[in-house]
Design a protein around this nucleic acid. Structure first.
Lengths: 149, 149
DNA sequence: TCTGAAATCTCCCGCGT
DNA sequence: ACGCGGGAGATTTCAGA
C-alpha cells in the first residue's frame, strides 16, 4: 500500500474504465503490473467493488433526508438492522453515539413519501422517537476520490 | 428510461466490469445494444461515473462522524462550501432544515483527528456552534443498488 | 437494434530482477 | 515479491443494413 497504489485508486475512483495501459503511463508501470496491483487491491478488500454512481433524481429519489431515531423500549436492534437493510429507501444506517441511537440516510421521491417512510418506521415497532432533517442542497455530494492527504 | 435500463443500472452497480455480452444475456439484448444504452445513460447524466468503492479503513479513515453545524454570525456560506469541498476529510456537506444549518459527513483516522477537524472547522470562522456524532457501527454502510421499488 | 468484422484491451504465463 | 513482455482470448466498437 504505497503511493503508487493510492494513485491507482484515485484514477480508478475518478474513472474505473480507464485502460490499464493508461493508468500505467501515469504511475510508470506496465499494463500487466498495474493489473496485478489492482488484482491485489481487490483481493485484500481495499477495492470493495467496481460500480457506477447513479443520479438519484433520475431514479425518482430527489429527496434526501437524515432520520434520527431511538430504539423503542421493546425494540430489537437486529430487527431494526434487518428492516433498514431491506428497505430500498434506506441508503445508510448508523449506530451512533449521543442522545439518538440511530442515524438513517434515506432517499425518497417526495416529502409525502418521506412522511410515509416515517410512519412505516414507527409502525414497525423497533423505533421509539424519531425526527427527520431534509437536505435542501448538497455543496459536497460525494467526495469519491481518496486524496493523498 | 424503462425497466431494461433499470436492470442494466442494477447490474452495473453491483459489478461495473461485467461484460456487455453478459448484461445482454440478462436483458435480452445484443452487446452493442447494451453498449448504446449505457452510452446514453452516461450522456444523460443518469450514470455519473464509473468508479470503485474503497474500504475506508484501508486508507486510514476508520472513524466516521457526522458533524452538525450552524453558520457563524459573520459566516459566509460560499466560503464554508469551498472549505468543505477542499477538505479531504469531508465526504459530504448538506445544507439542511432544522435547528442546525449544516450536516457534514466526515472520515478521519482517529478520534484525535476528529478533534483536530472540529478545532480547524471553528477556527476557519464560518461555523458557529457545532457538534459531532460518531458512528460506532453501520448496519447499512452503503446501499449501492438502485432497486426496482 | 442486430450482425459481423476489426481494433483494442485484458489476462495469463514465463522469465528476469 | 515485484515487474516486464508476448501472445491468446475476450471484449469493445464500428460499419452496414
Amino acid at each position: 500500500m504505497n503511493s503508487i497504489d493510492e494513485t491507482i485508486l484515485q484514477l480508478l475512483a475518478a474513472d474505473a474504465r480507464r485502460a490499464l495501459a493508461d493508468i500505467g503511463a501515469h504511475v510508470g508501470l506496465s499494463p500487466s503490473a498495474v493489473n496485478e496491483r489492482i488484482r491485489r487491491l481487490v483481493a485484500r478488500g481495499v477495492i470493495r467493488r467496481f460500480t457506477v454512481e447513479v443520479d438519484p433524481a433520475a431514479l425518482n429519489r430527489a429527496i434526501l433526508a437524515f432520520v434520527w431515531a431511538t430504539l423503542a423500549e421493546t425494540g430489537d436492534e437486529a430487527k431494526l438492522h434487518a428492516q433498514a437493510s431491506q428497505d430500498p429507501r434506506v441508503i445508510e444506517c448508523h449506530h451512533v453515539t449521543g442522545e439518538w441511537r440511530y442515524l438513517l440516510k434515506v432517499r425518497v421521491e417526495s416529502l409525502a413519501a418521506l412522511e410515509d417512510f416515517m410512519t412505516e418506521l414507527k409502525a414497525a415497532g423497533q423505533v421509539g422517537r424519531s425526527h427527520a432533517v431534509v437536505a435542501m442542497s448538497s455543496p459536497v455530494a460525494d467526495a469519491y476520490v481518496p486524496p493523498l492527504g
